[in-house]
């Protein structure tokens, strides 16, 4: 019995120790896991806080503002339900700015992409001097909207601008670039295409650089000329890049603001009043934060729809390598 108890005691001690050890290891694993999780959230915290304050809260607040009338200091005056939206949809200003933006998109996006393809494809040919041309075509990347707008306003000047001087030298009559309602949007589009050309060039060029030479070589062996090889082989392979570029260009043109604000202030006769300019005018000139927010939410819906189209619909039809 003594022996047994001794044996028991002897056995009991290690068993206890093992259990204690196990508990300790379990809890230290738990501590380690807890530390890992809290570190993960700690690393995410700055981003999350900033997104919450400057992105998600404003989105909710926009919705809230769009259902109310506000005073010029942004305080809520009364709840009006969907009146702001109804008013918006029945105002000619809304439909005008929607159609101006659509026209602006049509004028800038296809031309911009074609210029991007041409400049990138030509400088992608392996010949001397191409690095220099590549640098020149990427130069507009450094241009901001305000420097571009100031330069082009001077180029566009009706009596002293260099563009009209060139036209006159060529025996043509001068153009009222920014003051003729039928011309102003076209002029702004020209300037915008120029300003964006560096970005489009870089996007298409890096798309081209991602295409294996083998494809083009095999097309050449089949006897295709350089132009046919480009259209039939390279363009389809480039379609993911071009598609992505198209979508972000459309989104970008719906966000245009600076050049309009600087060059025409939406005029003449509202002919250049694009969407974001209308939002700006509603909210920060007329102090109508409610209708301004309703305007902004319509913009959000349009851009969201474009993004969804990108992800869900057209991406399937684009050729991927």
């Amino acid at each position: 019995m003594v022996l047994a108890s001794m044996q028991e005691g002897k056995l009991a001690l290690p068993a206890q120790a093992v259990r204690a050890h196990r508990v300790a290891r379990k809890s230290s694993a738990r501590v380690r896991r807890w530390k890992e999780v809290s570190l993960g959230y700690l690393f995410l915290a700055p981003s999350l806080v900033l997104f919450a304050v400057f992105l998600f809260y404003p989105l909710v607040k926009s919705l809230y503002l769009s259902l109310h009338l506000t005073d010029p200091r942004g305080r809520i005056a009364e709840y009006v339900g969907f009146d702001n939206f109804a008013q918006l949809l029945s105002s000619s200003m809304f439909w005008n700015s929607l159609s101006v933006t659509a026209l602006f998109t049509l004028l800038t996006v296809p031309a911009g992409i074609v210029i991007g393809i041409v400049t990138a494809a030509l400088t992608h040919i392996k010949l001397p001097g191409m690095r220099g041309f590549q640098f020149v075509f990427s130069l507009p990347l450094a241009m901001s909207v305000s420097t571009s707008a100031v330069i082009w306003m001077i180029l566009f000047h009706p009596s002293l601008g260099i563009l009209n001087y060139i036209l006159q030298q060529a025996g043509l009559s001068p153009i009222q670039w920014l003051t003729d309602p039928s011309m102003a949007l076209l002029s702004i589009s020209m300037m915008t295409i120029w300003m964006q050309s560096g970005f489009n060039f870089i996007m298409v060029l890096s798309g081209l650089q991602g295409i294996s030479e083998d494809y083009i070589d095999s097309a050449k062996i089949d006897g295709a000329g350089p132009f046919r090889a480009f259209v039939q082989i390279v363009l389809p392979l480039l379609s993911p890049t071009l598609f992505f570029l198209t979508v972000i260009s459309i989104i970008g043109s719906f966000q245009a603001f600076g050049q309009i604000h600087l060059m025409t202030k939406g005029g003449p006769a509202g002919s250049t009043e694009v969407f974001v300019y209308s939002i700006y005018k509603e909210a920060f000139v007329n102090y109508q934060y409610g209708t301004g927010s309703a305007f902004a939410l319509v913009l959000f819906a349009i851009i969201l729809a474009l993004t969804i189209v990108q992800f869900a619909f057209v991406e399937k039809k684009v050729h991927y390598q």
Partner: peptide
Amino acid sequence: IPWEVTIIPNYLT
């Protein structure tokens, strides 16, 4: 979320 959409509330904030 385009920045332009959040600009009114952000300005007020």
